[in-house]
């Protein structure tokens, strides 16, 4: 008799034990694990202010939805300057990035052993631009030849070596 009761009790107990060991308390979402609403008189009294004079401080804290357009100024002390080049004047054109910067970048590969200068967002006659920029880079190299690669499909020019500042200053002086 005793043996049969043991047998009937045992599966239940073991199941409970296994559940205890194997399951963690459920992680509900923020909403489900939040506190239950208590009677309203238990909360501190509040005042709901429409058209509050402090709303201007809130608006100041909200980020702009799009990248703002730079305002024209007399001088730009940081060295940044707005694009002045007209696309119809030259056979080529370099668009600014969404952040209004000149798209000249440095690619470092092989732990800095190979440095490539990349000019991106080129439109129009990329070969003419490559000739012009190569002259700039070669003058920065004291007349030594420089290797370059043109990808006319994606509008990118690669120069061997770090000539980011040289090319960026040159393009800025050309109004790009």
């Amino acid at each position: 008799m005793a043996a049969t009761t043991k047998l009937t009790l045992w599966p239940k107990l073991s199941q409970q034990l296994i559940r205890l060991i194997n399951t963690q308390p459920a992680l509900h979402s923020n909403f489900r694990s939040s506190k239950v609403v208590e009677p309203l008189d238990q909360y501190p009294e509040v005042e709901i202010v429409h058209n509050a004079p402090e709303w201007k401080y809130v608006e100041r804290l909200l980020p702009p939805r799009i990248v703002p357009q730079p305002k024209p100024k007399e001088s730009y002390p940081s060295g940044w300057q707005p694009q002045t080049a007209n696309a119809s004047e030259r056979s080529y054109y370099i668009a600014r990035t969404k952040n209004h910067m000149v798209p000249v970048y440095l690619h470092t590969r092989f732990r800095g052993q190979r440095r490539l200068t990349v000019v991106r967002r080129v439109q129009g006659d990329i070969w003419a631009l490559e000739r012009d920029l190569r002259a700039v880079v070669e003058s920065a190299r004291n007349g030594k030849l420089c290797a370059s690669r043109v990808n006319e499909l994606s509008g990118q020019i690669y120069f061997h070596g770090d000539y980011v500042d040289v090319l960026r200053d040159h393009l800025k002086s050309q109004g790009f």
Binding site: P44, A52, K56, V58
Partner: peptide, 24 residues
């Protein structure tokens, strides 16, 4: 924490409302 906004205030961006605790 923020300029012009005091701790304890609640900002409702949808209704553009500020909920302030009443001073006792």
């Amino acid at each position: 924490l923020f300029y012009g906004l005091e701790p304890g205030w609640l900002i409702n961006l949808v209704d553009k409302v500020i909920v302030k605790p009443k001073e006792t």
